[in-house]
């Protein structure tokens, strides 16, 4: 089978982290945040990490929606810290959202991209990032004031600090190897996802 060529300008080192350890090690206590999780891998692992906490809105479709949902939520809830946790595939589908978010610059929002360089749900095809496209440089170019890339365990501490002590908009690129995520059988009824998130946050 013919293979796509890697970008000749690609400079990223090979990914070494396993997402099953790295994502929990970065986020630590999900209950401290309001979280929008992108479809497939990230929604599965956030559901598994929290046993489906109502503080996590996990997408099951509408690919590309997570970053902008996080912006709307962050603007609506300026006193809460909001995380978008999504994959490289979803982020690539709506790169303009990074520019839109950076222009608004909400201080309570962090976008975490769990970048495994592959479309894990559809047959593990290479994604653009797996072929060398650098989302951290795109985020910086879009205007994110803080961009942090996690390649190794040594980079995790700064990521944790940004989530906990950071007082501004940040983009964290968490580069992981391809491979399985933590999974549980999670709710896939969309309106149940909305209703329980709003009930927990707003009491309605």
């Amino acid at each position: 089978m013919a293979k796509l060529n890697k970008l000749q300008v690609a400079t990223l080192p090979d990914a070494v982290l396993d997402r099953r350890q790295a994502v929990p090690a970065l986020i630590e206590r999900p209950e401290d945040f309001l979280i929008v999780a992108g479809l497939a891998g990230t929604a599965q692992e956030l559901s598994a990490m929290t046993n489906e906490s109502p503080g996590v809105f996990g997408l099951g479709g509408a690919m590309g929606a997570a970053p902008m949902m996080g912006l709307g939520l962050a603007l609506a809830q300026p006193k809460r810290r909001v995380l978008v946790v999504t994959g490289d595939g979803e982020l690539l589908m709506n790169l303009g959202a990074l520019a839109t978010i950076a222009l608004q610059n909400p201080p309570n929002l962090t976008v975490i991209c769990v970048d495994n360089g592959h479309y894990g749900e559809t047959g593990n095809q290479d994604s653009h990032t797996g072929l060398g496209v650098a989302l951290d440089r795109i985020a910086a170019g879009a205007g994110f004031p803080v961009v942090h890339t996690i390649n190794t365990e040594a980079d995790l501490a700064e990521g944790r600090r940004l989530l906990r002590e950071g007082s501004g908009l940040a983009f964290i690129l968490l580069r992981v190897k391809e491979g399985p995520t933590h999974k549980i059988k999670r709710n896939l009824v969309p309106h149940v996802e909305r209703d329980r998130f709003r009930r927990a946050l707003l009491g309605v």
Partner: peptide
């Protein structure tokens, strides 16, 4: 424009 559809969904999650 699709960004706006997602953003307004997030607004509703936050009560706005």
């Amino acid at each position: 424009e699709e960004e706006g559809v997602a953003m307004l969904a997030g607004a509703d999650l936050g009560g706005a």
